[in-house]
Write a protein that binds this DNA or RNA. Structure first.
Lengths: 120, 120
DNA sequence: CGGCAAGGTTACCAAAAGTATACTAGTTGC
DNA sequence: GCAACTAGTATACTTTTGGTAACCTTGCCG
């Protein structure tokens, strides 16, 4: 991420250390950036939450979206799926220690958008 | 973001303070989350950069994307467009104080993905 | 038995996002 | 005149998202 541009003796310009595909910022965004992804993780921060409760909490998102986001987060090891031996059977999702490390930047983002973005 | 689910005396569940469309996290993602958006802002953090230099620095993105992202960031007041009276005429983009407030969370994200995400 | 809750899956569709390539118009240096 | 620079636009296309709605299985309650 120290990309710069240099000009050679003939006036031609070349990028040095150009930032190709996977800058850290881009990679992070791929993991946390999708619609609802941050919200889903955020809602798990205090306690495990069951699938249907999540869909109720995150009003605008469909079951399909929640399901996709949960799989996505699980595939990155940020949350865990846990089957509850209740009747009827239930499933809860809980944040992992690895997932908790992401809360810091989600919280920064939250603070930033609360303080800087127009209320709107 | 304190959404929870309550059960009434008949066993029916209702979401309290459900998180509809614009949670702070979602809104922040809309501003910083698009592909290349974070990278573009990041590359402006130290000094103004000219258009074509940006496209060279960010190897994977087309001019159209850079142009769109710059307009997007400008529309949110995070960067400024500045015409340089050089020959040939040039344009430089510089980060605004408002834009600088976003660097904190971009940096958190960068640190997070560097330390937590598989090198890949 | 009918209906409901749980935890999803499936099919389908629309719209957004991103890519690739070409092109403008003006300037400068070789 | 040719090439390369400036800062973008225009066009066309493909891919990825996101969203709706219906459906499924198992088990419980009345």
């Amino acid at each position: 991420m120290k990309a710069r541009v240099e000009t050679d003796e003939l006036g031609r310009k070349t990028a040095i250390e150009a930032c190709a595909e996977p800058c850290a910022i881009e990679r992070g965004m791929r993991v946390l950036g999708g619609k609802w992804t941050g919200s889903v993780l955020w809602h798990l921060k205090d306690e495990p939450v069951r699938f249907n409760d999540l869909t109720r909490m995150i009003g605008g998102a469909s079951k399909k979206m929640i399901s996709e986001r949960l799989k996505h987060l699980e595939s990155h090891g940020l949350i865990e799926r846990e089957v509850l031996e209740t009747r009827p059977l239930g499933v809860a999702y809980r944040i992992t220690p690895r997932g908790e490390t992401a809360l810091r930047c989600l919280d920064e983002l939250r603070q930033w958008s609360e303080s800087v973005l127009p209320q709107h």
